[in-house]
Amino acid sequence: MLMLSLIGIGCGDPQQLTQAAIGAINAADLILIPRKGTAKSDLAELRRSICADVLTSARTRIAEFDLPVRDADDPDYRKGVDDWHDAVAAVWSREIANHLGGEGRVALMIWGDPSLYDSSLRIARRLDPLPAIEVIPGITSIQALCAAHALPLNEIGEPFLVTTGRLLRENGWPAGVDTIVVMLDGGAAFQTLDPEGLQIWWGAYLGMPDQIIMAGELAEIGHRIVAARREARERHGWIMDSYILRR
């Protein structure tokens, strides 16, 4: 049978690997490493470094491949994402067939938050043939963000909400909560809010050597975050950031 292991590797710090993740990496017959273009080459390098550090199985093969790019200009957001997932699944299926065939264990190391926004499980369920799927959980960027700021996420007895930059920009502050976590924000959507009375805890490249964190009153540091974010994107060619807002 064919088994696919989706292995959470945290947000960039190899020391965040769990023993379960190390075991799953070494149990694999094939490890697939996606390349996301030169702008995100350090993500592929992170996976290579993890293999160099913890992979001891001589029989495990490593194959790299280029990921399709999502059409960010598609006016139908959901259709654009579905089309992209289909394209990624086709590439996964092709690489598995070329390097492993229909039997064995294939692994993908998942960076970031597979439970929230990585979509690896949605893609995995489109593979042909459909493999058995296991998930090895890892540190999420929400955990890393809270740890970086030594911050408890929720107030005592109070809920919080995880949302996206797109929804925050389109709909404003969600009703019924005073704490929100914002992810997948390509354009600093907090700028669309009235900053008075809001605190922000922001972080980029969490767990990586280039980690940046900033915190304070949004009215006072919002512009500094925007500037730091712009400079970091220009330097690296990409940015993945998240933040917590509280009122």
Rank of each mutant, 00 (worst) to 15 (best):
N26M: 10
P131W: 03
G165N: 10
I139H: 00
T164M: 05
A97I: 08
F65Y: 14
S120Q: 04
Q211H: 01
E196F: 05
W238S: 13
G165L: 08
V135I: 11
I156Q: 09
F190A: 05
V181H: 02
I139Q: 04
G197T: 09
E95V: 05
C51D: 01
L67V: 08
S120V: 00
V54D: 00
A58R: 15
R47V: 03
D113L: 10
F190E: 05
P129G: 05
G203I: 06
Q199L: 10
A227Y: 03
G203Y: 02
D76V: 09
D82W: 05
Y117T: 05
R59T: 14
L6N: 01
A147T: 14
T192Y: 06
L116G: 02
I156Y: 08
R233H: 08
R229W: 01
A150C: 15
D128G: 06
W173I: 13
G197M: 08
E217V: 09
R126L: 06
H236Q: 15
T192M: 09
D53T: 11
D178T: 15
I22Q: 05
A148V: 07
F65I: 08
T140S: 15
Q211C: 00
T60F: 04
A144F: 03
W111G: 00
A232Y: 04
A228E: 07
G186P: 08
V182S: 03
A21C: 10
P114C: 04
L6R: 09
G187A: 15
M208Y: 00
V81N: 07
D82V: 11
P68W: 13
S41K: 12
W202L: 11
P114G: 02
A148Y: 02
R122T: 08
L127Y: 02
S49R: 15
K36V: 05
A63Y: 04
V88G: 05
A148H: 07
I244L: 07
A27F: 00
A97Q: 15
P152Y: 05
A28C: 12
D178C: 07
D74P: 06
M240L: 12
I212G: 00
W238T: 15
A228T: 04
L167E: 12
L218G: 03
R105N: 11
I244W: 01
D86M: 08
A219I: 14
T56A: 13
D53I: 07
V162P: 01
R224C: 04
V54Q: 03
I136G: 02
F65E: 05
S115R: 13
N154M: 10
G186Q: 13
D241K: 11
R235H: 07
A90S: 10
D66W: 09
S93T: 14
R78Q: 12
E170V: 01
V162C: 09
I156R: 14
A58F: 04
P129V: 06
A147F: 05
L153M: 06
S5Y: 02
L121T: 00
I244E: 02
L6S: 02
H149Q: 11
V81F: 02
L116F: 07
L151M: 12
Q211L: 00
Y205L: 02
